[in-house]
Every structure is written in C-alpha cells, then in structure tokens.
Design a binder for these strands. Structure first.
Lengths: 195, 195
DNA sequence: CTTTTTTCTGAACATCTGTTCAGTTATTGT
DNA sequence: ACAATAACTGAACAGATGTTCAGAAAAAAG
C-alpha cells in the first residue's frame, strides 16, 4: 500500500498536531513515541516526517504557536484607561484563554526542559513579553496610586501563577461556573494589589 | 570485577536517590534511563536493582518521601491562635520548605502523570491532606471574622499556587533575600484573604 | 486518458530501553 | 585464617526508539 484514500495534507497535518498535543500533555514529550502519534492519526510513523522535520520541531512548533496565539489574543482585547479595569480584563482573559486550551498550557509549562537551548530561548522570550504586558498594568496602577505593590515583578509572577492554578482543578461539569470562578479570582487579585 | 572497594549500601542507596532526583527534575522521568542514573553514581545499571524493585518504585518513593516530609515539617511548626498568624506562619514555612528542595517539588508536581494509577492515588491523597490543613486555617479565619473568602477551597489552591510560583524564579544569588521574598508574598496573601 | 505531483507504506538502520542473573570480589563475622 | 554475606559487574534478553527512503497508490493537472 501507499497513498491512502481521502488522504490530504490539510487534514493529516492538523490531526498530527492535535494528537501530539494531547499525547504530550497526557504522558509527556519524552514518554510519547512517534509511532504512538502516528497510530492515533491512523498512519505509519514515516508519514509524520512529511509534516515535521523531527520530533523536537513538532514540540517547539506546538509551544510557539500557543505562545503566539496567547499574545495575539491578549493584544486584541480592548484596553481600558484605568489600571484596575485593565487588570480585571486581564484576569478574565487569562483564566478563560487557559481553560480553553489545557493541553497547550500544560505543555508550554512542563516541556520547557525538553526544548533545545535555542528553542528554549525563543519560548522564554515570548513568555517574558506576555509577563511584561501584565507588569505594565501593575506599574501603571502604582503610578496612578491605585495599587500598593512593593515589587511589581514578583507581583506579576504571583498573579499569573495564581491564575494558572485554575487549570489544575477546574472541570466544566464542576460546582462552579466560569463566571463564578472569574469573580472569585478577581476578588483575590484585586485585593492582593490594592492598598 | 564485582563488589567494588568502599562500596556500602548506606552510601550507594542515598546517592542513587539523589542522582535520580536531580536527573528526573532536570530531564523528566521518562527521559532519564536507569543507565544514566547508574553512571552518575559510578555504578552499573544492574546495581540499582539492589535498591529499588523497578524504575516506577524509585519515582514513587521519591515523591512520597517528599510529601511525607512536607507534612511532617508543617506539623512540627507551632500553631498560633489567630488564623491570621497561622496563615503568616504557613506562608513563610511553605516558601522556605519549597525553596530548599526545588528538585523534589518539581518532581512532585510534574511527574504525577508518570505514576501508576495506584501510586497516583496515594500521592494525591497526601497532597489533599496538606491542602486541607491550609483550608482549615482559611475556614477558621472566616468563622472568626478575620477573613473574607467566598470559596475557601479555591482560595486554598490559589494561595498555594501563588506561593509555588516562587520556585520558578527565585535564585539565592538574586536581587532579593529570603526574608524580603517572604514579606512580599505575605503582603499579597494577607490582603487577598482580608476583608 | 495520461502525466505529474502529493501522500503514504513498509522495511530497514543503529542504538537505546528496563530488567534479570550467574559469577566475582570486598567486607564482615567467627 | 576461614566462612558467610553484602555489593557489584558484565553480559544477555526482547522489544522500543527516532529517522530514512525506495517504491506504490491516490489525487490533481494537462
């Protein structure tokens, strides 16, 4: 056998990325073989190499796509004038964006150590850009006298870490709605940075 | 060759655990081979099996030891009367304990997916015990009217997630001392749960 | 219908994987 | 000094690993 019925790169390509994303998130990059990914897609392992030069590039591509989508989505959110309102918007955005992509988020945080040095540098830079955006809000709030923050860098990381935590426990069938989760977290974030 | 000069289980045993801990944290459980661990210790791979029945047991042992030490250390901290003071003590304890064992902490959070189902259940149970202790403080604070928390379960996870974040950026040679880090985080935690 | 291009198979590659175990040496006990 | 035990080696095992590639079949283009 060779080319199969209905095969098309527009279909197989995305399916490979979806399978890799799910499997990497579930078992870890190192624990997942190219043959497992191929099997999930219904294809032989060799066929994957029409879509990625190697396994490492596949991981990097998934991570950089995620980080760029994150940044682009946040850039698209209209910014209010007051720092408080901007921070509230960020809290909601971050929670919702991350809950929509648990696998990608998981990989972006857990598989950094499996990137080559060059690829790691790139992903880290993207992450810093995103963090700097948040720190900008906190700095603005301090300047305008809205926030009381001894160290905006730490506060940035603390806020993000706190919000990321939602991914470890939230289940859509659970006790709380997305709106309620957002409200509870916003309450804590808002108080944490206030005077 | 066979038994080597100066070999002793009291020495080799701990060295295997240390090597495994560092390597698992650095590259991930699945990415580290028994031969790599053995090489680090200066021994052949077969010798490891005098100290662990298999690789999975080694991982589980490292994780459960960490969780039990964590719980024991927290139990040993004298508890104040007021919830506010207990929460302050917890904040300091948690930050310091975690910063002293970055590798063990990393593994305990990242390698859950590489545990067998039975082992996962045990580790999860230990983690819940620890979390319940924190939630107890928050509940007490709410009852005594010291704290304003709409959902103590979420707040517990949020506080822990925020504090865990310190491990991702803190460096002992860095800008801030441990005391300063503790003070900054306590400021945020305290405000986040207050009225 | 014929040609070209795209997509995939299936086998092969060298190397690595966790684990077992008979045999060998160092240490400990008598 | 010798016997018993503890600690380790080195080879072997069956199978999995990432990656390459000639060839074959389906789809698209002419």
């Amino acid at each position: 056998m060779a080319r199969t019925q209905g095969s098309h790169s527009d279909i197989t390509g995305p399916r490979i990325r979806e399978a890799a994303l799910r499997l990497f998130a579930q078992h870890g990059y190192a624990a997942v073989s190219m043959r497992q990914i191929a099997k999930e897609v219904g294809v032989q392992a060799g066929a994957l190499y029409n879509y990625t030069p190697d396994k490492q590039s596949l991981l990097f591509s998934l991570m950089s796509s995620h980080m760029e989508e994150l940044q682009a989505a946040w850039d698209a959110v209209p910014q209010a004038d007051s720092a408080l309102e901007r921070l509230r918007a960020f809290t909601g955005f971050h929670i919702r964006f991350h809950l929509e992509r648990p696998d990608a988020v998981f990989i972006a945080y857990m598989e950094l150590r499996n990137l080559t040095e060059a690829n790691f540098t790139i992903i880290e830079s993207l992450r810093r850009d995103y963090e700097n955006g948040v720190e900008g809000i906190l700095k603005q709030g301090v300047e305008q006298g809205e926030f009381a923050i001894p160290d905006t860098k730490i506060a940035t990381l603390a806020v993000i870490a706190m919000l990321n935590g939602v991914n470890t426990w939230y289940r859509s069938e659970g006790r709380l709605s997305l709106d309620e989760v957002e409200r509870v977290y916003w309450g804590m974030v808002q108080k944490a940075v206030s005077k």
